[in-house]
Each structure stands twice: as C-alpha cells, then as structure tokens.
C-alpha cells in the first residue's frame, strides 16, 4: 500500500516488483450426455408396471493453459515466481456422473382398491470436487400405499 519509489521502468516496493500482466488464450469446454429409457405397461388387467433408467455424464475443463515466457513481456528476469502454470487448467474441473433407476407397480385388489409400490435409487459420482469438495453420494427411497377410488 505504500507508494512505489519514483523510478522509471519496472517499479518496486521493498522486495516486491510489479511487471504488468501476462495472458494467453485458452479454451474451456463443458459437455453433458444423457441416456434414458422408460417402459410402462399392463401385463394383466390388474397389474401395471413402470420402470425408468437414466444416466447423465457432465464435465467441464480447460485445455492446457500455455502461458508465454514472461521475459518476452518484461526486461527483468523473474526468478522468484514460477510462471509455467502447468496445473492451472485443472483448478476448476467438473466431472459428475449420475445414474437413476426407478421401478413401480400397482395391483388392483378389488373394484376401487389398488395396492401401489415403487422404489427409486440415485447415485452420483463426483470425480473432481470443486468449491464444495467431493459430492459423491447416493439416495434410496421406497414408497408403498393403497389407493381408493369412489
């Protein structure tokens, strides 16, 4: 925060030097792929079945970031800082995959009385972890009941 000494060229403040900035062009790419399959039907007059399968894969990543040599931009040699940025493109990687399966049935016990049951399973795999840490986890739910029509 103290002022720079009044010298031309690369300014300095104590031991810290300022040399402007450096840039390169880089590509960031996101992809999402989904597959789903659903089937429902009535094998008998009393029984109704349904099932769904879904799969999703989502990724986001930079291509390798290739910064130019800082000596092209400034006259001084920057010896105390590594400007190769070899891992920079991996800082914000996203890599999720999720599978969801559901099964359901309903069976007519009598006129106006139907038994229902269904289940759902979802599993998410996070291979990158970003901001919130690794978010892999799964969820399982079963549900059952009776339906009355009148």
């Amino acid at each position: 925060m103290f002022p720079f000494p009044a010298v031309r060229g690369d300014s300095t403040i104590g031991e810290i030097e300022h040399f402007g900035s450096l840039y390169t062009m880089a590509d960031y790419e996101t992809k999402a792929q989904n597959v789903y399959l659903s089937i429902s039907g009535s094998p008998t007059a009393k029984l109704r079945l349904s099932s769904t399968l879904m799969y999703n894969k989502s990724t986001g990543e930079y291509d390798q970031v290739n910064m130019p040599d800082p000596s092209i931009e400034v006259s001084s040699t920057l010896v105390d800082q590594d400007f190769t940025f070899d891992d920079m493109h991996e800082y914000s990687n996203l890599d999720y995959s999720m599978i969801q399966v559901s099964l359901g049935l309903s069976y007519k016990l009598a006129d106006g009385v139907t038994f229902t049951a269904d289940g759902e399973y979802a599993d998410l795999t996070d291979d990158a972890g970003y901001v919130y840490g690794i978010e892999s986890g799964s969820l399982f739910m079963v549900r059952s009941g009776m339906k009355f029509d009148f």
Binding site: E17, H18, Y23
Partner: peptide, 10 residues
Amino acid sequence: GPVAVALFDG
C-alpha cells in the same frame, strides 16, 4: 477467452 495473470516476482 483470455486467461490473464498479474506478474509479480514473488
């Protein structure tokens, strides 16, 4: 797009 960094020697 551009990826820019400030140059510091430290």
